[in-house]
Amino acid sequence: MKHAATRRIIPLIAAGLLLLGTAATIYVQSFQQQETTDSITVNGMDITYAELTDIYPEKTITGYDDERYTGIAMADVLTHAGVMEPSTHDYTFAGADGYSKQVEWKHVQDSVLTDMDGKRIIFSELPKQFWVADLIEIQVG
């Protein structure tokens, strides 16, 4: 009797999980299509990577994975966006697919914004999980 119930419930649970996954996929895809853009919104100001490279020198850092990465220092990006006293803020980096990470200034100060993977933030002190790709927004908290 118990075995028969298990035989019925297992396929139902599996089907439920697949339905849940399908619904989540539709949600994630619709969010991504709405948010894809070429510029990054920093502190409410739209900035393009080309605009930054015209003004600021590129900087090379060693990432958490010991590889070398070249980009615009995040301190310069924040200065360009008019962020006052950057060391007093926290920063939330949001990607086009909804992936976001909140990071403290002590980690942001040694990071660079690169044009790889649709504009990606690279940290020297934080693992790749924090390297938000397809960056569309930096919120200053």
């Binding site: 999980l17 996929t25 992936y99």
Partner: peptide
């Protein structure tokens, strides 16, 4: 906020 991605990719 990453829960929908996890549920989606797990499919």
């Amino acid at each position: 906020a990453l829960l929908p991605r996890a549920l989606s990719h797990a499919t």
